[in-house]
Structures are given as C-alpha cells and as structure tokens.
Simulated assay, not measured.
Amino acid sequence: MASLDRPREADTDQHVNPRQDAVETLARLLRGQDYTAIVHNGFLVASAGLNVRPVRVWCQPRRSDGNRLWFHWTGATPICEADKPYEALTAIKGHLEATP
C-alpha cells in the first residue's frame, strides 16, 4: 500500500519551467480582468478585444539584473520583474487601453 504522506514518484519527476510558469500566471491574471491572453512558449499575446491591437509580452532573463526573469515588451523593453505579475498586469492593461 502506498503512503499518503509522501508524494508519488511521478509528482517529484516533473520539470519546472520558471519562464513558462511566470507567463501562465500573468495570463491567468489578464483573463481574470476579462482580457484575452494566449500563452505560447515563453511569451503571451494579450488583447482587449477585436478592435484593439494585441501586444506580446515575453519572459526572459535580464543580464543587468543577475539574469533574473523579467517581463519584456517585444523588442526587449523591460516591464518589470517576473515575480511581480501585478505590476506587469497594470502595465499591460494601460497599454491595451491606450492603444487605438
């Protein structure tokens, strides 16, 4: 009989991808605010509707910050650290609402 106090082997063998986790967390926050967020490998595409131009947000290491993960606009313009998804949410919402 298996012990309920320890994780199954399959649970401990899963590989964690911090970039993808950060992108998925941000996508959930955007969806919770009624935005569209489509997750790809290492980035997401966010939109506020059919008549608003979507934006891409990447999650990449930033050399000048000890290779910590940061959210970036396309073109590598930094938004904020990946461990601050609410700051990224605010920036993305502002950008989408200001974009015609």
Rank of each mutant, 00 (worst) to 15 (best):
A2P: 15
S3A: 11
P7E: 10
R8A: 15
A10F: 10
A10Q: 10
A10P: 02
D11L: 13
D11W: 10
T12N: 08
D13K: 14
Q14F: 01
H15G: 06
V16R: 14
P18L: 14
P18G: 04
P18R: 05
P18T: 03
Q20Y: 09
D21P: 01
A22T: 02
A22L: 06
A22I: 05
A22N: 00
T25Q: 14
T25G: 09
L26E: 00
A27Q: 00
A27G: 04
A27S: 09
R28G: 03
L29G: 00
L30F: 00
L30T: 01
G32K: 07
Q33H: 14
T36W: 01
T36D: 13
T36K: 10
A37I: 00
A37H: 01
H40F: 12
H40Y: 14
N41H: 12
N41I: 06
F43Q: 04
F43N: 08
L44S: 04
L44W: 06
L44D: 04
V45W: 03
S47N: 07
G49H: 01
N51F: 13
V52L: 06
R53F: 05
P54C: 07
V55Y: 03
V55S: 04
R56I: 08
R56M: 13
V57M: 08
W58R: 07
W58N: 11
C59Y: 09
Q60I: 07
Q60M: 11
R63G: 03
R63V: 08
S64H: 01
S64C: 02
D65K: 13
G66I: 06
G66F: 00
W70R: 02
F71S: 05
F71A: 08
F71W: 08
H72K: 13
H72G: 02
W73R: 10
T74P: 02
G75S: 09
A76Q: 13
A76F: 06
A76T: 11
A76K: 13
T77C: 05
P78Q: 09
P78Y: 09
I79P: 01
I79V: 13
I79D: 05
C80P: 03
P85A: 08
Y86P: 00
A88H: 04
A88G: 05
T90D: 14
T90L: 11
T90P: 02
A91K: 12
A91I: 05
I92Y: 02
K93L: 05
K93W: 03
A98V: 03
A98I: 04
A98M: 08
P100A: 15
P100W: 12
P100H: 14
